[in-house]
Design a protein around this nucleic acid. Sequence first.
DNA 1: AATGAATGAGCCTTCATTCAT
DNA 2: TATGAATGAAGGCTCATTCAT
Lengths: 195, 195, 195, 195
Amino acid sequence: MAPRTNEQFEQIRAESKTKILVAALELFAIDGYHNTSISKIAKHAGISKGLMYNYFASKEQLLKEVVILSLEDAKKMSEQLLQNLEEISPTEALRLSLELFFQMLIENKTLWKLTFSLAMQISNMPSVTAVISKMFEDILQQFEMVLQLNGYSDYNIEAKLLAAHLDGIALHFLIFEKTYPLEEVKNKLIANYCK
Amino acid sequence: MAPRTNEQFEQIRAESKTKILVAALELFAIDGYHNTSISKIAKHAGISKGLMYNYFASKEQLLKEVVILSLEDAKKMSEQLLQNLEEISPTEALRLSLELFFQMLIENKTLWKLTFSLAMQISNMPSVTAVISKMFEDILQQFEMVLQLNGYSDYNIEAKLLAAHLDGIALHFLIFEKTYPLEEVKNKLIANYCK
Amino acid sequence: MAPRTNEQFEQIRAESKTKILVAALELFAIDGYHNTSISKIAKHAGISKGLMYNYFASKEQLLKEVVILSLEDAKKMSEQLLQNLEEISPTEALRLSLELFFQMLIENKTLWKLTFSLAMQISNMPSVTAVISKMFEDILQQFEMVLQLNGYSDYNIEAKLLAAHLDGIALHFLIFEKTYPLEEVKNKLIANYCK
Amino acid sequence: MAPRTNEQFEQIRAESKTKILVAALELFAIDGYHNTSISKIAKHAGISKGLMYNYFASKEQLLKEVVILSLEDAKKMSEQLLQNLEEISPTEALRLSLELFFQMLIENKTLWKLTFSLAMQISNMPSVTAVISKMFEDILQQFEMVLQLNGYSDYNIEAKLLAAHLDGIALHFLIFEKTYPLEEVKNKLIANYCK
DNA sequence: AATGAATGAGCCTTCATTCAT
DNA sequence: TATGAATGAAGGCTCATTCAT
């Protein structure tokens, strides 16, 4: 066989890396960062323990990249909304924003669980914290804009309140899972905000 | 010489136990449960590693008692409110409840940090989870009552919304600490709820 | 009250010591030496951990004295037999010796268990081993004498065989306990030796 | 470089595992299970402490495998006898059985020591006990058969007596080692049984 | 004589990380 | 690129022993 080209190597690398990241995300979110060993991740990803260190300098670095990757995904989703924002009424935009949040919450429970568990736990992992903070600011800005469009005078502080509200709901939902009446809470919240 | 009296032993025990509980609470809250080793706790408390096991059967049991102790403190505070609840107007009661929450949040940052960090991390520690869940239910009931008195028809689901709102605010406050405009958020929240 | 006399102190000491020895024997025999902690022994004896060190320099020393005490008891029993040995026929003496052995085995299962478990385990505890060896020699001499009286020419080596036979039976009985047909084995053995 | 082939890994594993098993057998037999720490075993085997857990799930599992391995060796030896059993006279078969026992005792002192020391100490380790019991039953059956062929009417109970006799001799030999007249005892025993 | 709180060495075990191949 | 055997520090926990009272 002809030797692999650089592109082929590059692709193999990318595939392996992705496999590892996906496996790590799943395990971190379900079992928590500390309860997930490199061994488990390697097995789950179908690769060897040693290979992991070929792509990530340490377990902490892997965590950081998991978070980055996940948040990028989330951002992509939310940007879809923004594209159409100008074509619809402000109220509708707000409603859509909220609907989007709940949709993402349900569809990415794993990621949310991970994010929350990290948020409270990694004062000693600044690089990871920074990534999470950055994303939070982005979301806040979006909310400010949408609330401003909806005529909220205190949109600055109201955005913070809304963000807190949503994160609080997410937190409770993730803790109580099946017993939490997410649908009712969501409807009530939207009703309250979009009147 | 004669051995110590029972009272003397009791006092020594109480002091040591408290020392350990306090040290554990601080470290658990700052570094998280998994990042806090028994060694660290012992050093922080100024005792030997082995002594911990004289008072707590395991690290998990220590955590449980830390949580219980902290929640008892919190409960005492909140009960102060309930005493006067019937003498004041419903609106005032709601305002007081919210004020109380923020006061407790500020005064017991450590406990809140611990609670949140635990909430996402200890699905496999039923005994601890149970204690936290119990407290959450208690708070929820209080909110339901106060909201009902304030004429909220959907007081059931509104209580859940309020609880989420408060926990969300607490979460953000604990993450961003000094940069979080807690006072403004608090005033706005109270204004929104007590109109 | 008048101060205690020396005799009273002496008696208290003796009682405490005995309590500890008895407790230790029971626990050592049931759970094994290594699985029995000083704490357990103290609790079982109804005294404090510290007091034990008032009477025994170490756990190993305690073990040694337990063994000595137990073997002395055993010796007393066997000496009862010897007293009457001259009044009965040699065959009867042999039968009685064997009967005595089985009786002691059944009545002192605890001690036997302990002895066996020690015998194989304490090459690194010479002081204890010495005591056990000494007793074994004593027993062997008795057997030699009785076998000689019964006309065994090779009484020297036959005594060793007999001792081994009895210890083997004891070993199996202690391992299999209820399922071991001790009575049948005993009758057959006696029948074989006393014909 | 290319990773090792499966065969290479297999061989490395086999070698390490054997090193550990051999080291463990020796130390368990000499010092007893409880007095032998994983650290000691690792040092004795010339490997790191952690590596043991790459091959054995726990110290108890290691013990179990040590016992199994040893008993397999023993079984192989005894099966050599059975092959020729039908070609020789019953008396000769019995004599051979006994000779074999003594040969195995001398050649596998370590294993015997281990077996005895375990027999009295591991009532709380069912998995290990089961293996040992199984082997004992096998041996008993063999004895029953051979004794029956030799015309013993009570071969059932006589087999138990014989097994006890042999184990008793082994026990004494292992305790007193060099000072025990094993050869004389063996000859006398065979003489007694094969007349 | 008696107590039990306190110590600290040592135990079994886990796991991130390295390295020879 | 890829493997997994090997390491060693660290973790939770036990327990014989000491010591102030």
